[in-house]
Nucleic acid binder design. Structure first.
Lengths: 206, 206
DNA sequence: TAGATTGTTAATCGATTAACAATC
DNA sequence: TAGATTGTTAATCGATTAACAATC
């Protein structure tokens, strides 16, 4: 097990390895190689071996990697060998779509709390998730102990809501708003930003 | 103007510069410096100057950059000094949310075609966007000349639909499915992958 | 055993940062 | 002018690739 901090860019590739291995597992593939895995993901075999070697020795010379074993190891490394609770803040079109999405639940991410400041929405349900008012947010999140939030509020309130989330004990935010959040550095923030990606692509469209 | 291909990692930062500058423009800020812009985005001043220098000389020693001028220049470089038409494929919860989202339209990205293979959805409207059946997709897209698609279909059909999109003349795909698309290399694909980002964050949550 | 593939070291490549002359 | 800040070159840093001994 590595002691030194692993480069973030390497950590960021592990979920992609895990996904490709999951597919192999579902297809009944028992063993793979860095070569084969690399081709599936579009990454060099050398890089995969180098990345994995940061965390331990998972393969066997001559035969490669047991898919099942590597899946287990990666799940443990990423801490997704358990279930995670999420809070959803902002129940607009996008928030509602996320609440209904089965892809999170299937992978162990379960939304257990949802908040909105629109009184028309408060009290309504999405599946068995009840929308609560923002006034009770800090207390509810603190009590629940949830550590991860998905932020789908209007841009204008993103920073303020994020600060309240941090006060409530949230440690990681998946930020769907187009706002650069200014938070204590120990809080992890990941950005989902389709507009930035569209503008990135149009560069190449001439 | 640069002749050699600009590193993709630099191109990917330009939309973020543009967004920060847009905010300055709206706030009436006339002039900025690489220092100030860097602080707003969390990037070093040196990197901003280096990045911009790939495309030209946009600043003045001693005074910095005209916000308005730099916005204009970046918009031209990214080809967002015009309007872009989009096609939406897959009108589920997420697709519907994207169709309703005003953040695209405001930035010159307008969904003009939407397709789904669910006969219950075909013929229905989202705003003034009419959902059409997948059987007419190739013809409609070809005729429209749209170059960018947003893909929000189930994972199981993602690859096949993407191939049809390419046949229809699509050159760039914003892929919301958790599927690694295998397409000709001249097709640009960007991935929106919340699960990968959640798993990236849980690594740090211990 | 012979062939295959790992984990790791060394070499290469590319990106970021630092420094500063040029100049507004 | 003096102060500020650019654009660019050189130095540093980090990430990727290549190569190969170890070994299953």
């Amino acid at each position: 097990m590595a002691k030194n901090p692993i480069p973030d860019i390497i950590v960021g590739r592990l979920p992609r390895y895990l996904r490709a291995l999951d597919i192999m597992l579902r297809n009944g593939i028992k063993t793979t190689s860095s070569q084969e895995l690399g081709e599936a993901i579009g990454i060099s075999a050398a890089q995969i071996r180098k990345d994995l070697s940061q965390f331990g020795e998972f393969g066997k010379q001559g035969t490669g990697y047991s898919v099942r074993y590597l899946v287990d190891q990666l799940q443990a490394i990423l801490h997704v060998d358990r279930s995670w609770d999420l809070v959803l803040v902002g129940v607009g079109d996008l928030g509602t779509a996320l609440a209904r999405y089965q892809g999170f639940v299937n992978r162990g991410f379960r939304i257990i709390l949802a908040f909105d400041n629109d009184t028309d929405k408060v009290g309504k349900s999405i599946g068995n998730l009840k929308v609560m008012g923002m006034d009770s947010m800090e207390e509810e999140i603190s009590r629940s102990g949830v550590k991860i939030a998905m932020l789908t509020v209007p841009a204008s309130s993103a920073q303020a809501v994020a600060e309240t989330l941090v006060k409530s004990g949230i440690k990681a935010i998946l930020n769907y708003t187009p706002v650069q959040l200014n938070l204590p550095e120990e809080i992890r923030v990941e950005y989902i930003d389709p507009l930035v990606k569209l503008q990135h692509m149009t560069y190449y469209l001439g």
